[in-house]
Simulated assay, not measured.
Amino acid sequence: MRSHILIVEDETRLAALLADYLQAAGFTTHCLHTGTGAVEWIREHQPALVLLDLMLPGTDGLDICRQVRAFSQVPIVMTTARVEEIDRLLGLELGADDYVCKPYSPREVVARVKAVLRRTRAERLSPPTTDAGPLWLDDDSLRVRANGGTIQLTAVEYALLKALVRAPGRIFSRARLMERIYDDHRVVSDRTIDSHVKKLRRRLAEILPPGQELIHSVYGVGYRYEVSEDQRPSP
Results as ranks from 00 to 15, higher is better:
residue 175 A to T: 15
residue 147 N to S: 03
residue 154 T to Y: 06
residue 143 R to P: 02
residue 156 V to W: 02
residue 175 A to H: 14
residue 178 M to N: 14
residue 160 L to V: 12
residue 138 D to N: 15
residue 144 V to W: 10
residue 158 Y to H: 14
residue 171 I to E: 05
residue 155 A to W: 15
residue 156 V to N: 13
residue 139 D to K: 11
residue 178 M to H: 14
residue 154 T to H: 12
residue 155 A to I: 13
residue 158 Y to Q: 04
residue 178 M to G: 12
residue 163 A to E: 04
residue 140 D to M: 09
residue 136 W to F: 13
residue 163 A to H: 04
residue 172 F to C: 03
residue 145 R to Q: 12
residue 142 L to H: 08
residue 157 E to L: 08
residue 146 A to M: 05
residue 168 P to Y: 05
residue 140 D to H: 13
residue 153 L to Y: 11
residue 155 A to S: 14
residue 161 L to E: 13
residue 174 R to W: 00
residue 177 L to P: 03
residue 148 G to L: 06
residue 136 W to A: 10
residue 132 A to Y: 10
residue 141 S to M: 08
residue 134 P to S: 02
residue 173 S to H: 06
residue 137 L to S: 07
residue 144 V to F: 06
residue 177 L to G: 06
residue 141 S to H: 08
residue 172 F to E: 07
residue 139 D to F: 02
residue 149 G to H: 02
residue 137 L to W: 04
residue 158 Y to I: 04
residue 155 A to C: 12
residue 173 S to E: 12
residue 171 I to T: 14
residue 159 A to V: 01
residue 134 P to Y: 01
residue 166 R to P: 01
residue 133 G to H: 06
residue 160 L to W: 05
residue 179 E to G: 05
residue 147 N to P: 00
residue 131 D to C: 10
residue 137 L to H: 04
residue 177 L to D: 11
residue 165 V to N: 07
residue 132 A to M: 08
residue 150 T to P: 04
residue 143 R to G: 04
residue 151 I to A: 01
residue 168 P to F: 00
residue 153 L to S: 11
residue 141 S to L: 11
residue 144 V to L: 07
residue 137 L to D: 07
residue 166 R to G: 02
residue 179 E to V: 00
residue 132 A to W: 08
residue 134 P to N: 01
residue 148 G to M: 05
residue 137 L to N: 07
residue 173 S to R: 10
residue 131 D to N: 15
residue 152 Q to G: 09
residue 145 R to M: 06
residue 133 G to K: 05
residue 144 V to M: 09
residue 150 T to K: 11
residue 138 D to C: 08
residue 171 I to F: 04
residue 164 L to V: 03
residue 140 D to C: 09
residue 141 S to F: 10
residue 161 L to N: 09
residue 150 T to H: 07
residue 133 G to A: 06
residue 140 D to I: 05
residue 165 V to A: 10
